[in-house]
């Protein structure tokens, strides 16, 4: 069953499990030491982490197909949350249906390792198809807004995220240390780690606001601290999970840290535009699914093309 998993991937999953156990113990300890303080959100957050990491690890360990299905499902949830959040036109119900229908196709190309189709399906074919479908329906009021917002959603929630899944089908022989699953783990772990690192550095040392109009809690100190820690960790983990050399892993770390930050603030800008604090309520303690995968919408395609160009 575990033939598609290398020992270092197993070790990395064990490491993540260890971090979760420690986080849960710290939360329990905090609650006991300060019974007067409210730790509900922290505890909910950690509980949601357990569920997300449980499902993710289960899919990774089960098989490559299960892992691809996992990412397809995440894309589905993300696109659904997005179209539930933005203004849509009543006339576009059937257009939205085709946007959803793109998800199984996109992940099927991934499963079949059809790189050419994977890379043009949404940016070319869906980009051309959806406005055509809108025109056939014939509603012209807010046409541009509808076509633009829907394509942005498909690019972000489906096209970008599906890059994480394409790591799984890359030639395993070129990455003997980690295989496809190793690169996925490298991407997801570092992206989420970067979120936490930027948050913690910001809380501890943050003073100078970096982008106050979009995200008033983000600071230069948090950002730079995150970049430093994430890049260092990217260099430590690279030989175990990826084919990257030391210098390349430095670039990968910077890419994830920077890309993660930008992904985070673009979704913040979207939420600020719409006027909501959380994108949904799917993940207690985190908010919606977009609140969790925001950074990944940038890091997944960026890291993928970096690694693909250098090694595949």
């Amino acid at each position: 069953m575990l033939s598609h998993i290398t020992p270092s991937v197993l070790a990395a999953l064990g490491g993540v499990l260890g971090i979760l156990v420690v986080a849960s113990l710290i939360a329990a300890l905090l609650k006991r030491l300060h019974p007067d303080k409210n730790y509900t959100e922290l505890i909910q957050r950690i509980r949601s982490w357990w569920i997300m990491i449980g499902i993710f690890s289960g899919a990774i360990l089960l098989s490559r197909t299960a892992s691809i299905l996992f990412f397809a499902f995440v894309s589905f949830l993300a696109l659904k949350e997005y179209v539930s959040l933005i203004p849509t036109r009543r006339a576009d119900r059937r257009v939205l249906f085709w946007a959803y229908a793109a998800i199984p196709f996109q992940y099927y190309w991934v499963h079949e390792q059809w790189y050419g189709m994977f890379i043009i399906f949404i940016p070319v074919y869906l980009f051309l198809l959806l406005p055509m479908r809108m025109v056939i329906i014939g509603e012209t009021k807010d046409f541009l807004r509808a076509a633009g917002t829907l394509h942005w959603g498909l690019m972000t929630m489906v096209f970008s995220l599906s890059h994480a899944a394409f790591f799984l089908v890359l030639d395993g022989a070129r990455n003997p240390a980690g295989g496809g699953a190793g690169l996925v783990l490298y991407l997801i772990f570092l992206t989420q780690f970067n979120d936490v690192a930027q948050y913690v550095w910001g809380k501890l040392t943050g003073r100078h606001k970096i982008i106050p109009k979009v995200s008033p809690n983000k600071t230069w100190e948090g950002f730079l601290g995150g970049v430093g820690t994430t890049t260092a960790l990217a260099m430590v983990l690279a030989p175990h999970l990826t084919p990257l050399t030391l210098v390349e892993s430095l670039g990968a770390g910077l890419l994830i840290a920077l890309g993660g930050f930008i992904g985070d603030v673009t979704i913040s800008a979207l939420k600020r535009d719409i006027g909501v604090k959380d994108s949904g309520s799917l993940l207690p303690g985190h908010g919606g699914i977009l609140d969790r995968i925001d950074s990944l919408t940038y890091t997944a395609p960026l890291l993928f093309h970096f690694v693909y160009y250098l090694h595949y």
């Binding site: 589905f76 659904k80 949350e81 179209v83 539930s84 119900r93 059937r94 939205l96 249906f97 959803y100 949904g280 799917l282």
Partner: peptide, 8 residues
């Protein structure tokens, strides 16, 4: 309508 389109 007969086609279900997912929304939260």
């Amino acid at each position: 309508e007969a086609i279900l389109v997912p929304f939260f």
